[in-house]
Amino acid sequence: MIDTDLKLEIVLPKVPDIELVAIQGLEKMGSYFGISEDKIGEARVLVTEAIINGLEHSGGDNPYVKVEVTMTKDKLIILVTDNGKGFDPESVPIPEIEKKLSSANKRGWGLKLMKSMSDDLLIESKPTGTKISIIKNLS
């Protein structure tokens, strides 16, 4: 096993289930370092939610997200960048199950899940795109 980090860089177009490509890479890296299934399971949620959020907000004639996953045996860093028009993360309401049950819109859980399962989350958004940076401790 190498002591340094492993890095996966990939550009994903907006096609159904494309997030599974990144998930497969994540699982291979986790297996290489012997990361526990619990940690990889949570990392799977982080990567999935960051990518589907990015693809939802990506725009133009060529919507895509750029995904960078860097893993050591102790830490995971996930960067997902889209080319959309950006959004104000502060304006995203925190979802509550009681309200969602009586609402026509039952979506909007991605940010809450990413905040809950990560150790650090940063969203940088501007009119040319959004970058989500996630850190998760693996040890």
């Binding site: 997030e19 599974l20 998930i23 399971g41 799977r44 999935t48 939610e49 589907i52 199950i97 969602k100 049950l101 039952k106 979506r107 909007g108 859980w109 991605g110 899940l113």
Partner: peptide
């Protein structure tokens, strides 16, 4: 089902 995304779960809430 080992992977569920938040959009899929919204249907379960339905």
């Amino acid at each position: 089902s080992k992977v569920v995304n938040s959009i899929g779960i919204s249907y379960l809430i339905d």
